[in-house]
């Protein structure tokens, strides 16, 4: 089932076009990987799905992004509600300077949850869901900065899923992590797709191949090819895709 339908999405600044007429469907409970060389517009595309580009005043967005058939760029769209439904995990782990518990409780609190018992239950649920609970259960009151980089990133995932979004956007979530943390993160992504629709931007082609169901290849702001991952990786239709996957440029 289509969760997000992107229709003729354009993004540009006064100086250049960042995204050129992107149209694609993102499927529910699947992992969609966005790959492409640096500067191809991957991150801008990802940030256009939860309107985080709103903070860049020089970027203009045109076209439609339909989340459950509702255009998120409509005037009556509540952007805070949108971001509650479309969570995001960033490139560098960015926990708040709060305790492990408070990091996750924050999202629940800002969306109006006051019941301490409910908050506690959901924090623990999110930590378990993010495969982090066993490692931190005895030190929930400790600063989030006492965790390792990989643990911090899983904490950020727990924080994002605690408010039960429908979609989870990940912007190169493993690029700052060591190999073991990366493997843990990939396992986690595979588990999470049962409950969430995941869109992940990655520099790492092998990673896209390992974890994604669909792959979109972006180049110079254009969507070159989009298909099931196995098809893209075995029988790409475009020469450009093939060259990129074989590492001839990047």
């Amino acid at each position: 089932m289509v969760k997000i339908a992107v229709r003729h999405l354009n993004a540009y600044t006064k100086k250049q076009k960042i995204l050129k007429d992107i149209t694609l469907d993102i499927y529910e409970n699947a992992v969609t990987a966005i790959i492409g060389p640096s500067g191809c517009g991957k991150s801008t595309f990802l940030r256009s799905l939860n309107r985080m580009n709103d903070f860049f005043e020089d970027i203009t967005i045109e076209g439609e992004v339909l989340l459950d058939n509702k255009n998120i760029y409509d005037k009556d769209m509540n952007v805070f509600e949108l971001r509650k439904n479309v969570g995001m995990v960033f490139q560098r782990p960015n926990p708040f300077p709060k305790s492990i518990f408070e990091n996750i409780a924050y999202g629940l609190k800002i969306h109006g949850e006051k019941d301490k018992k409910v908050i506690e239950e959901k924090v623990i649920w999110a930590l378990k869901e993010a495969n982090l609970y066993e490692e931190v259960k005895d030190k929930l009151g400790d600063s989030a900065f006492s965790l390792s980089g990989g643990q911090q990133q899983r904490l950020c995932i727990a924080r994002a899923i605690a408010i039960e979004p429908k979609v989870l956007l990940m912007d190169e979530p493993a690029s700052a992590l060591d190999p073991i943390s990366t493997i843990q993160l990939e396992r986690l992504i595979e588990k999470l797709k049962k409950e969430f629709t995941i869109v992940i931007v990655t520099h790492n082609i092998q990673q896209a191949g390992r974890i994604s169901d669909y792959t979109a290849f972006f180049y110079m702001g254009e969507l070159v090819e989009y298909d099931k991952t196995e098809k893209i990786f075995t029988t790409p239709k475009k020469k450009l895709t093939e060259d990129y996957l074989e590492g001839r440029f990047g």
């Binding site: 969570g87 560098r92 926990p95 999202g107 800002i110």
Partner: peptide
Amino acid sequence: DFRDASFALGAT
């Protein structure tokens, strides 16, 4: 990073 994380959670 802190502000981004907060906004991405739907904070005002």
